[in-house]
């Protein structure tokens, strides 16, 4: 089997993570924010799987499964919140929810 440079996998994960992060930072639409979060979680999962391949051990994949579970639960709750928010404020603009300012 041909080899794959270990750090390239990790760098890909880092770039994907950063893409998600910039989405979180710049977006005002809460649906996009949630999607960006998914990208970040997925990037973490990728890093774990790469690590798993690097050390030839399955624990990294187990960790990926856990992240998957977490993402599923988080998306369910997050979408529920978005729907509730849209019902109450008739917008998906996250800036509207700024009542908790000092």
């Amino acid at each position: 089997m041909p080899s794959i440079p270990y750090e390239h996998g990790l760098i890909l994960a880092a770039i994907l993570f950063v893409c998600g992060l910039i989405g979180v930072l710049t977006r005002r639409n809460i649906v996009f924010v949630l999607m960006s979060l998914e990208i970040m979680l997925n990037a973490c999962g990728l890093a774990f799987v790469v690590g798993s391949a690097r050390w030839g051990h399955a624990d990294g994949q187990i960790m990926f499964l856990m992240i998957l579970t977490l993402a599923a639960a988080e998306v369910a709750v997050g979408l529920g919140l978005i729907i509730q928010m849209y019902r109450r404020f008739h917008t998906v603009d996250i800036s509207v929810l700024s009542e908790m300012k000092g």
Partner: peptide, 21 residues
């Protein structure tokens, strides 16, 4: 952040021969 991450990651080069789990 990206510069930091990459600078950490490129310090060593290990070629991975994937083993199927």
């Amino acid at each position: 952040l990206l510069v930091q991450l990459v600078s950490v990651l490129v310090t060593q080069r290990v070629d991975v021969v994937p083993v199927e789990v």
